[in-house]
Amino acid sequence: MKTLHLLRHAKSAWDDPGLPDRQRPLNKRGRRDAPRMGAALAAEMAPVDSFVSPARRACLTLAGLCEGWPALADCDHTVDEALYTFSAAALWRWLAATDSDRSSLFIIGHNPALTELINELLGQWQLDNLPTAGYARLSLSIECWSQLQAGCGQLQRLLIPRELPG
């Protein structure tokens, strides 16, 4: 059994149209939501190592999570170029190549890749959109990451910022 934690980066700013996509920062809502999500996740789970897209908005989301979840800051965080993708197929390949010794993975990435990956792992379309700063935890009925297959997942938790108090 494997556990997959997926978090979409918090809301990014679009106020500088000349800025390359990778360099876009978080907007006001994103800077507010990331720490709130960190605090909410801290209340439900132990901190875990994370793998993060190199996009600035994803790295700033991780920083915000750590602000709200200080114990997360003590974990290992790996920025991985392969996670700057909008393709579920690319994420699938990345997951399938992961060391089987890892019982869980926490990824901070992008849509539509995350939403599509969730639905493929669930084996049916259950989620129309993982919103910005949205979190999904899936339990996967596999022993090795290389055994990923459509329908091997079960959605254990879906948490989105608008459900949080305050």
Rank of each mutant, 00 (worst) to 15 (best):
K2Y: 04
K2I: 04
L4E: 10
H5F: 09
L6K: 03
R8V: 06
R8H: 02
H9Y: 00
A10D: 05
A10E: 01
A10C: 05
K11I: 03
W14T: 11
W14G: 10
P20T: 01
R22L: 04
R24S: 08
L26I: 13
N27S: 05
N27C: 11
K28M: 05
K28N: 08
R29V: 13
R31E: 08
R31D: 07
P35E: 04
P35L: 06
R36D: 03
A40Y: 01
A42I: 02
A42T: 07
A43G: 10
M45Q: 15
M45C: 13
A46F: 02
A46T: 12
D49K: 08
F51Y: 15
V52F: 07
V52H: 08
S53Q: 01
P54E: 11
P54N: 07
P54Q: 10
A55D: 11
R56I: 13
R57I: 09
A58D: 01
A58P: 02
L60N: 10
T61S: 14
T61W: 04
T61Y: 09
T61E: 06
L62Y: 11
L62W: 14
G64K: 05
C66G: 09
C66K: 12
C66R: 05
E67M: 02
G68N: 00
W69D: 06
P70F: 07
P70Y: 09
A73F: 04
V79I: 15
V79K: 06
D80E: 15
E81C: 01
E81T: 12
L83G: 04
L83D: 04
Y84H: 10
T85L: 09
T85P: 10
T85D: 07
F86C: 15
F86V: 14
S87M: 14
A88E: 06
A89S: 15
A90H: 15
A90F: 01
A90I: 10
L91F: 11
W92G: 13
R93W: 08
A96N: 04
A96I: 03
A97Q: 11
T98H: 13
T98P: 00
D99V: 09
R102L: 14
S103D: 15
S103L: 14
S104G: 14
L105K: 06
L105H: 02
L105W: 05
F106S: 02
F106L: 12
F106A: 11
I107S: 07
I108S: 11
G109S: 01
H110P: 04
A113H: 05
L114A: 13
E116N: 13
N119G: 12
E120S: 08
L122C: 15
Q126L: 14
L127H: 09
D128F: 00
L130V: 12
A133F: 00
A133C: 15
A133Y: 03
G134C: 05
Y135C: 12
Y135K: 07
R137W: 00
L138D: 07
S139Q: 12
C144H: 13
C144E: 15
C144Q: 14
S146E: 12
Q147Y: 01
Q147A: 15
L148H: 10
G151V: 06
G153I: 14
Q154W: 02
Q156T: 14
R157I: 00
L159D: 07
L159C: 13
I160P: 09
I160K: 10
I160T: 15
I160N: 09
R162A: 00
L164R: 10
G166I: 02
